[in-house]
Simulated scan of single mutants.
Amino acid sequence: MTVGFIGTGSMGRTLIEAFIQAGKLKPADILAANRTKAKAALLAKNHPGLRVAHSNRQLAEESPCIFLCIKPKEYRAVLEEIKDVVRPNQIVVSITSPVMIRDLEEWVPAKVAKIIPSITQAVLSGNSLFVPGSRLTEEDQEMLWDLFSTVSRPLVIEERHTRIASDLASCSPAFLANLLEKLADAAVEETKIPPEAARSLVTQMAHGLGRLLTEGGFTLESLQDRVAVPGGITREGLNLLDQDVGPVFNRLIRLTHAKYDEDVQQVQHSLCTGKKV
């Protein structure tokens, strides 16, 4: 089956290369299109057999399953281009959280799903967030589940929880990387430890932490209890973090939700203006 990817930017490329790495898709199974054709051409060069479509319309005509790996503001133009060639037996998957399934189902007659990936899929890990549309059959859902199971642990969520689930699964790698960077930088500033040593220490710690939580039988709570003995240095540090850092995450979630609500309104205004199919 040909799987088409409209958009080969950061996340589109990540998904394509993850599916190839996992052995689930061969390059010859993939048809890609991108506004900047050089990006799609580079993918084809790096993965011989991968084909580059001349247009989004050609891709939609030739792909039983189509992934829309594009920014919210690009949806109107792409849907305008492909809506007349998309068929009811095709599957259209959006990886963009502010684009609502009901709006996509008004634009195209295909079976629609929303699946939000994460950068962690680059190492065949993490969750992908699965929101099935109303037209997907059980067989369609099984196919998509099987596809994403090779690069992630799929998790079915309600569309109303897309934003918070995306914060935790997709945005958090950047958030936590920023915190680790700040921790290493503070260590350098306060103690003059060599920067390369500080970065190595926090990076290797994060690697081990992930394994402890996924393979070592620890939970977030039990790991803290195991490391932090009463009256010890770690417990003092945790008390400070609870006091000063905890509230930051409440503010962070409020911020991401406010931006999400703004994006949803902009996308719906764009998609709901003009003729649909």
Results as ranks from 00 to 15, higher is better:
157 I>H: 05
36 T>Y: 09
140 D>E: 08
226 R>W: 12
143 M>V: 11
128 S>F: 04
183 L>K: 05
11 M>T: 04
151 V>C: 09
7 G>M: 08
137 T>D: 10
168 L>N: 03
95 I>K: 00
164 I>G: 05
103 D>K: 10
4 G>E: 04
263 D>C: 11
9 G>Y: 14
269 H>W: 09
268 Q>F: 09
13 R>L: 12
275 K>I: 11
58 Q>H: 06
95 I>F: 06
97 S>R: 05
40 A>F: 07
194 P>A: 11
47 H>I: 10
213 L>A: 08
62 E>F: 08
225 D>W: 07
84 D>F: 11
31 L>M: 12
126 G>K: 02
125 S>Q: 12
118 S>D: 08
145 W>L: 14
77 A>R: 11
110 A>Y: 01
138 E>T: 15
238 L>T: 03
90 Q>Y: 01
76 R>E: 09
250 N>G: 14
59 L>M: 07
191 T>P: 07
167 D>C: 09
267 V>L: 08
15 L>T: 00
224 Q>T: 15
250 N>R: 15
148 F>I: 05
178 N>C: 13
81 E>K: 10
126 G>W: 00
220 L>P: 07
273 T>E: 07
115 I>E: 03
228 A>L: 11
50 L>C: 06
250 N>Q: 14
112 V>L: 09
78 V>R: 05
132 P>F: 01
237 G>M: 06
106 E>R: 15
227 V>P: 01
47 H>N: 10
75 Y>G: 08
275 K>G: 06
21 Q>I: 01
56 N>T: 13
124 L>I: 04
67 F>D: 02
56 N>E: 02
34 N>G: 01
178 N>L: 15
131 V>K: 04
208 G>P: 03
11 M>W: 06
263 D>Q: 14
139 E>Y: 01
209 L>W: 00
3 V>G: 04
46 N>G: 12
158 E>Y: 08
115 I>Y: 02
254 R>H: 12
107 W>P: 03
95 I>V: 15
220 L>C: 12
248 V>R: 09
177 A>G: 14
97 S>E: 01
265 Q>Y: 07
132 P>D: 04
97 S>V: 02
47 H>L: 10
80 E>S: 10
181 E>Y: 14
262 E>Y: 00
51 R>A: 14
19 F>N: 02
20 I>T: 03
190 E>C: 10
92 V>D: 00
202 V>S: 04
138 E>A: 14
